[in-house]
Design a protein around this nucleic acid. Sequence first.
DNA 1: ATTGTATGTTAGTAATCGCTCACATACATC
DNA 2: GATGTATGTGAGCGATTACTAACATACAAT
Lengths: 214, 214
Amino acid sequence: MKTRTRLDHQTRQHQIVEAARELIATGGVDSLTIRGLASRVGVTEAAIYRHVASKEEVILLLLQEVQESLFQAISRATRSDRHALERLEHMLQLHVSYVELRQGISFVVIAQAAQFEEPRVRSAGRRLVEKYLSLVSEIITQGIERGEIDKTVSPDAAAMIFFGMIQSAVTRWLFDPSTHPLSENAVAMWVLFRTSLEFSDEDADRHLKEEGTD
Amino acid sequence: MKTRTRLDHQTRQHQIVEAARELIATGGVDSLTIRGLASRVGVTEAAIYRHVASKEEVILLLLQEVQESLFQAISRATRSDRHALERLEHMLQLHVSYVELRQGISFVVIAQAAQFEEPRVRSAGRRLVEKYLSLVSEIITQGIERGEIDKTVSPDAAAMIFFGMIQSAVTRWLFDPSTHPLSENAVAMWVLFRTSLEFSDEDADRHLKEEGTD
DNA sequence: ATTGTATGTTAGTAATCGCTCACATACATC
DNA sequence: GATGTATGTGAGCGATTACTAACATACAAT
C-alpha cells in the first residue's frame, strides 16, 4: 500500500524530529548532529537523509513542531470565554507545564533561531514569537473591550511582559531547576503583574456596579 | 620589563575576548572558533593558546567580561539615592543602551551558558543572572522600606519580571531590530509594569501626606 | 655575551562535522 | 516472475574542529 509507506515516511520523519528534540533537551543545541539522530533513531546516518534533506530541515521541522505543540498545549486556555485575567493565568500555567514537559526546548530553540543567519530558520523563529505575542495581545484587547482589563493598558506591551515572565522563569530554571521551580516563580510574577492589568479600586467598584445592573 | 610583557599578555587576552564578542555578535555562538579568533586578532591559531588555555576559557572570560561591563554600564542607575522607581527606570534605559551597543551579546551568552553541560560555564552564567536579579531585588526592597513601592510587592518576583522585560525585548529585537526598537518596547513595558509597583491611589495620597509632614 | 622568558610560526594531529555514492533488500504492483 | 519504489547499509568524501609539538625570534635580566 502506498499510503502505508507514505505514513511510514512521515512516522520516521517524526521520529527524527522527536530525536532532535531529545538531543537538544539533554545536551544543548550543539549535540544536535546527524550522527546523534541516526544513533537515537536506530539507523545509519545515510538513512536519515532518506527522510530529511539536510540538518537545516531538521531544525525547521523542529521549530514547526515546537510551534504546533506549544499552541496545542495552551489552546485550552485561549478558547474559553472566561474572564480575560483567568484566561491569561490559565495560559501561563499551561505554558509552564509545557516547558517542564519538554524541558525548555522552546526557549532554547528560539534563542538559537535568533542568532541564525539562514533566513528561513530566522523567520520561522520570528513567526513563532510573533504568533505567541499576538495571541496574548488579542486576549488582552478582548479583555479591554469587555471591560475586564484597564483600558489604559497597552496590549502589545502587556503581551511582551507576559512572554518575558516565561523567559525569565525558564532561564533561571534551566540553570538550576531544583531551586527555581517554574510554576512557583511564574505564579509569583503573575500575582504581581495582574495588578497592573486590573482596574484601580474606584474603577473596579464602578465596573462591579455596572455588571450588577446588566 | 616584566610588567610590560605581562601587560601585553593581558592586552592580548583582552583582544581575544573582544574578538570572541564580535564573532558571536555577528555570526552567533557557532561562529566562535579558534580560527576565527586568530584571524580577527591577526595571529595564528597556535598563538591564541599562548594567552588562553582552551576555548572553554575564552567562554568563561567572555562571561566574566559581559558581567563586568554590564554592571559597569548600569552602575550609574544603582548608586544614586533617588526614588526607587526612577532608579529602576534609569537602569532599564542603561541596560537597553548596553544591549544595543553590544548587539545583544549578554542575551546570547546567557542562553548558551544555560545549555552547557560544563559546570564552570553553567555556574558562571547562573551567577550572572542571579547577581542581576539580586541587584534589582535589592532596589525594590529599599524602595519598599522607604515607602516608595507598595509593600505587598514581592521583590524577587518583581526582579524577575524586570529581567524578563529585557529578555522579551531583546528576543524580538534580535529577530528584527528595525521593526522592534529596543528602547521603545522597553519604555512601553515599563510604563505598564511600574503601575504594579506603585501604591494604589489612596495609599499614594496617604504617603504623600506623610512625606509632607516629615 | 649569555640566558631565560614571552610570544610567535609552521605543520601537523585525531576527531567530528554534514553529506554522498554505490549497492542491498523488502515489498507492492503489474 | 519482472519491475519499480521506498528504505536501508557500508564506506568514504572534503571540510572543519580544538588542540599540540618543534622550532624561531624578540628582548629583558644577569
